[in-house]
């Protein structure tokens, strides 16, 4: 137990680092994801093709490879803003197609009748999308989006393997120092992850129930 208490400060800085990785990358992933989702449903064929290729390639590349690319290959190409920004770039890139897919499936989940009704009372394309389709889609998209961010929380641990001093890296360091208390150290770190992921999961479940009543 004392291994955890002694290193609480270290854990705390690691936790803050994980949290900032999570927040910055999720903002980036939302921006990029919305962009890709918009391209994916746009009437312009070439943008659609590009967005599809982007999604397919990034979704089928292991996160380790993407972060490896950011941590080793980008500096090799003389792009080196430091390991934290590089990890943020990697996590953003990796998460964005999942965000895009969540948004797209949310829009796809809106019953066609809704759009048809809007069109039949004479609404234009812009009105249909902004007043009828999107308000419903946003609600449907939130639970899957939260699941994406839960996954992102867990994925930030991979950045610990690439020189970002977040929770996983702290766990590795402290566990090496205190070989006698490895179990306690790792359980302590797991606790820090769980206080992010479990509330998010509960939130997703609640919103899902609320949305289900609507429909």
């Amino acid at each position: 137990m004392d291994a955890v208490v002694d290193n609480l400060g270290l854990f705390w800085t690691g936790f803050l680092s994980t949290l900032s990785l999570l927040i910055v990358s999720s903002i980036g992933a939302i921006v990029l994801g919305v962009l890709v989702a918009a391209m994916r449903i746009s009437p312009v064929a070439s943008l659609r093709g590009f967005a599809t290729a982007y999604t397919e390639i990034l979704r089928n590349t292991p996160l380790t490879l993407i972060l490896f690319f950011c941590a080793f290959v980008l500096p090799y190409l003389e792009i080196s803003p430091g390991y934290f920004p590089l990890a943020v770039i990697g996590l953003t890139m990796y998460t964005s197609p999942f965000v895009a897919e969540a948004i797209r499936s949310g829009i796809n989940g809106i019953p066609v009748g809704q759009a048809e009704a809007a069109r039949s009372i004479g609404m234009s394309f812009g009105q249909t999308v902004s007043l009828v389709v999107l308000p419903q889609a946003v609600r449907m998209v939130i639970p899957p989006l939260i699941n994406v961010f839960i996954a992102l929380t867990k994925n930030t641990s991979v950045a610990g393997g690439f020189f970002v001093p977040e929770l996983f890296a702290v766990a590795k360091r402290v566990a090496n120092d205190r070989g006698d208390a490895v179990i306690m150290v790792l359980l302590g770190v797991a606790f820090f992850y769980l206080i992010i992921t479990i509330p998010l999961g509960l939130l997703a479940g609640r919103i899902e129930k609320k949305v289900a009543v609507l429909r």
Partner: peptide
């Protein structure tokens, strides 16, 4: 709720 990586370690 736990990262796979932490579990591996």
């Amino acid at each position: 709720g736990m990262p796979v990586l932490l579990m591996m370690l």
